[in-house]
Amino acid sequence: MKIPSLKIYAIAYLIFLYAPIFLLPLFAFNDGTIIAFPLKGFTTDWFAKMAENDTLRHALSNSLIIALTSSAGATILAIFAARASTRYRFKGKGGIMGLILLPMVLPDILMGMSLLLVMLEVLKVNLSIATVILGHVIISLPYAIAVLQTAFATLDQSLEEAAVDLGETRMSTFRLIVLPLVMPGIISAFLISFTISLDEFIVAFFLAGNQPTLPTYIFSQLRFPSAIPVIMALGTCLVAASILLLSVAEFFRRRGVKRTGAKDTGGFL
């Protein structure tokens, strides 16, 4: 187990992870209708075509509404869960947290089909972006909790005790001491949930009815070869947006770790 050879392996692995993504901008700006080498020349036509597309604009606004609402919901629920699981001891905590975190390992199709069944057969409601929002909260909640648990766990409890000793109530302590310290974690959890929702396909595929979201729109276009260059352009924008959101999330996560004075062990999970 020599480290230099491991480092070369690690870099090769990273290249393998990223290589497909680098094809996106390459072909999004390529002046050719098929995705193949050799490259033809530089064009921004595909981005212009993308901007003109009405269905796509509709899908984008749907996706943004879904992502904003579901990530707000997931983050608020995650604050409760992360606070409860890091600060309090109570019976059945393992089981309760296990249920809430279950979507991390369950295949997404199970969430999609089971919610579809409940909406259509039991509750008899029509599918809309509202049903997608309900599903996306369930899916992003575990990841939001994972981020917030680190934020809450690194909190020094003596700070809260000091505030209570100095006459603050529980609520005001939470508002004045805890909330500012975990705020970077909250922002990070929100951005991660937002990214998950923006990119999520299968639950939206089951629950959106005839409303397009960005991923379901992309999926519907993939069988038309003529639509592929526009999809490459759209993919470039989506991946750029995801990387931007995640970088901001990571910035806030690190700031949160620094603020509570803990050692940075890295990572979202």
Partner: peptide
């Protein structure tokens, strides 16, 4: 460590559908 983990997790968070489709391409 944090920087490497961030680099490794980025592709995982970016559109699964597009990554699969890229392999088709």
């Amino acid at each position: 460590k944090a920087r490497w983990i961030f680099l490794i997790t980025i592709p995982f968070w970016t559109s699964y559908l597009i990554r699969v489709f890229l392999w088709k391409v």
